[in-house]
């Protein structure tokens, strides 16, 4: 029996600042998980991963992360991906800084 496929997003760290980024539907990189493209087809997810991994002058550590379709876009499943998407819990730095500046 084939194992069930969970929808995925392509994620990585930005090469220059290390921030968590996601592949969006326009082949660009977004720092916001909700703006990422969610791949519900396994082959398409792996194809996109392969292409993204070639963009080595932009990113490091590309991989597929499980996600679900939420109200405003993809949402994380595992807590590690949740923490990656929102930043550290002890300071308003990284993604928390960005969120607060936008607010």
């Amino acid at each position: 029996m084939a194992r069930p496929f969970h929808p995925k997003v392509v994620t990585a760290n930005h090469l220059l600042d290390g921030d968590v980024i996601y592949l969006d539907a326009n082949e660009g990189w977004t720092r916001n998980l909700a703006d990422a493209e969610l791949f519900e087809d396994e082959k398409r997810a792996h194809d996109k991963l392969r292409l993204a991994a070639r963009r080595l002058h932009e990113v490091a550590g590309v991989y597929l992360a499980d996600a679900v379709r939420g109200k405003n876009g993809p949402e994380p499943i595992h807590f590690r991906e949740e923490f990656r998407s929102i930043g550290p819990s002890n300071y308003p730095h990284g993604k928390r800084e960005i969120t607060e500046n936008q607010a």
Binding site: N13, D17, G18, L56, G61, F83, G87, G94
Partner: peptide, 24 residues
């Protein structure tokens, strides 16, 4: 882009530079 991440990683680690969850 002359070095891939796989090529660069051992070099940066030799100099104490890690890539962590949110940043270097």
């Amino acid at each position: 882009g002359s070095l891939t991440e796989d090529e660069f990683k051992p070099l940066r680690l030799m100099n104490g530079l890690y890539l962590q969850l949110h940043a270097y």
